[in-house]
Design a protein around this nucleic acid. Sequence first.
DNA 1: AAATTATTTGCAACATTGTTGTATTTTTGT
DNA 2: ACAAAAATACAACAATGTTGCAAATAATTT
Lengths: 140, 140
Amino acid sequence: MMEKKIDELLKKNHLSVTGGRKKILELFLQQEGALSHSDIERKAGEKFDRVTVYRTLQVFLEKGLIHSIPTSDNSIRYALCKEDCSGGHHHDDHVHFICNTCGNTVCLEGVSIPAIRLPRGYSADQVEMLVSGVCKSCNI
Amino acid sequence: MMEKKIDELLKKNHLSVTGGRKKILELFLQQEGALSHSDIERKAGEKFDRVTVYRTLQVFLEKGLIHSIPTSDNSIRYALCKEDCSGGHHHDDHVHFICNTCGNTVCLEGVSIPAIRLPRGYSADQVEMLVSGVCKSCNI
DNA sequence: AAATTATTTGCAACATTGTTGTATTTTTGT
DNA sequence: ACAAAAATACAACAATGTTGCAAATAATTT
Ligand SMILES: [Mn+2]
Ligand SMILES: [Mn+2]
Ligand SMILES: [Zn+2]
Ligand SMILES: [Zn+2]
């Protein structure tokens, strides 16, 4: 039963369990890849107000339930955090892949972001690595 | 004289030289870092229609005059291509840095993106690497 | 279990950002 | 200087994101 898991996830993150949050979390759990705001609006049907989706995603981000993935087309994607992340502190050192064929965005959990040497004076907080190309399913 | 350089840049890319294009190109040449659409609107004053800025950026992208830099906050930045890039074919294998203090985005031309091994089945077209932290100017 | 309190939601109103079509203006090539 | 081609402004619109607040719902206390 997924219902249980969802409830626990919300409670573990000190969030009150509501219809909207359950539904959105369910979407993430069903989905292999990442979701954009508009994906969620679409998949959730007419059930929730747009504003609720915005606020839910924001609170999920803050609590470390999801992380955001920047893209080149001005449409942030969101994906579930696998490990235990908390507000601001995401252990999110994996590469993200965007398929130019199917449009899917996935977390490549197995591919970690290599270290780089920054020029003198620069200090790094966070590193994102974003690969686009053709995904496993679309490569023949 | 920068005027000359701008004219040549436009002509080299088979673009008719117009007031708007000259102004926007000038902004890029003056600027150390990258510019967002709204930066450009603001810096160009009330001189140009918003639509013109959109279309100019698009044509600059297509011609390989500028490249786009994805960000986590849904606001694509644009920066001049240093090398000779042409439509679609950008030789843009450097890391981008976003300063959390001053907000500037810069191309780290000297820092190239390390190669990674993708899982079987995935093929890469383009790789972006985006580091956020504190830049040279803001570090003390 | 009911009441109280705290939190979330929907709605409305608005701001910002991005898109498209078209008439006018400007640039280019002759 | 002229004709053809291209760029621009303007208008109208669509999509996306933000804020305040009243009503609804969830959590907590009695
Ligand atoms: Mn991820
Ligand atoms: Mn760059
Ligand atoms: Zn694919
Ligand atoms: Zn800085």
